[in-house]
Amino acid sequence: MKKQLFIEVSLLLGLSTIVGFLYTYIAQQGFFAPKKAPTFTVLNLSDAKKYFEEKSALFLDARSEYEYKLGHIPGALNVPLYELKQSSSISSSIPHNIFLIVYCDGSECHSSFQVAEYLLTRGYTNVGVFYGGWQEWTNAGLPIE
């Protein structure tokens, strides 16, 4: 009796395992789901402020060196797209193990998106874009250096 129960339980569990993995393989789910291309997240001012206060992200300034020197978010690195593509020293100075927030002037500029996309192609997976950028940051009276 116990032996029969053991055989039946093993049969049900074994069959469930085989069918489960076979189904997810056919349906491309779970282990067999196609890997999604990494994308960046778009952040608003309150998100950016939160990360800044928690010091849990590295800010990347996608504007020109001249604009950066006039003022930037404290701790931000200057990474203009052209120089990022040309110089390997800039990309090697950006760590992989921290959330990166790219910003530029504001909603009219697109360099922050271009830098974020470039970083994704270079293997960075944890990237965000602060859409409001420098204008929204300064308008809110947040710290600058």
């Binding site: 039946e8 049900l12 569990l13 069959l15 395992t17 069918v19 489960g20 993995f21 779970g30």
Partner: peptide, 23 residues
């Protein structure tokens, strides 16, 4: 998550059909 739903489904169907009732 891959296996458990199928265990539930097979056991449920077995109960409905009356096969392997005890197991």
């Amino acid at each position: 998550a891959t296996v458990l739903p199928w265990i539930e489904l097979l056991c449920g169907v077995s109960l409905l059909l009356g096969i392997f009732q005890r197991s």
